[in-house]
Amino acid sequence: MPSISRRHFLKGSMAAACGLAVSRGAEAADGGGGEPLATLLDIRKCVGCEACVLACQETNGHKYPQPKKPYPKMYPSRVKVSDWSDKQDVTDRLTPYNWLFIQHATVTIDGEETELNIPRRCMHCVNPPCVKLCPWGAARQEPNGLSRFDPNICLGGNKCGEVCPWDVPQRQTGVGLYLDLLPSLAGNGVMYKCDRCYDRLARGELPACIEACPEGVQTIGPRSQILAEARRIADEIGGYIYGAEENGGTNTIYVSPVPFEEINRGSEYGPGRPHMEPVEDQMKLGNRLAAAMVLAPLAGAGAAISRMMRAAQGPEEDKTATDSAPDEGRDRP
């Protein structure tokens, strides 16, 4: 299978996607046939030049927070201000002003110590907990597989940050809807992260980081094709894939020449610096329990009918059933 280059993307899948985008609006630039778009990051190619980081900032700068100071006093005191407005030049981690950074990992390849450079941003999960568990609907997922936050609705509670297996969303205090509600008592700003340049995609353009990369580290296309390409490269180099199964699957697929456990050991991670550990599907248990919700009413109705039938079989049973209805029995006229 040919690799999916920027040119392929523009001429092929994007052509179809653009047609859909025109007909279905800004949220519809998908991979064709309703399939989400995914990105492939070939870690071998990244030289760490940060052209993608700069392009991201230039392209998405108008979306960055512009907080009003002084910030409201927060109650109770354990609620801390999260202010990155004076640190907008930080590029070595994720912040509300930096949605993509280059993570460095020291690994050993063929007995030689090597530094790998890994562009890190939102993984755009196939079933994103940040979107599905947002209590306000401020986070949304689009059919093309990207997830993003609505800064006009988000209250900055950081639930998305806590449920994200990679702790990607970053909060900025002093901006957003909470200022118009109960700024001292509820909310704490707005959450920010990579939106995979949803507006550029809707216009038929590539995400800025992909377009700006001089090394062609990233490609984008329908998820099935991206996965096939990732597997082809991995087979070819004896490499490893990250993101295909993590958290039930993501739309950001990394291919590495070394195991990701080694990358994880050789890199610095923590707040704003996502790990590359295996991640179970965080939504799986809940969604399995949904089956119980189908069975529960059947069990309830069955129990009622069974009890009615037993009660109808004899006067004693009948009496028991009737008397054990305290509400109805007591109040019956």
Binding site: A304, R307, M308, M309, A311, A312, Q313, P315, D318, A321, T322, D323, S324, A325, P326, D327, E328, G329
Partner: peptide, 10 residues
Amino acid sequence: MTPSATVLGF
């Protein structure tokens, strides 16, 4: 079943 005498309680 004798429905005229049967009311399921809670």
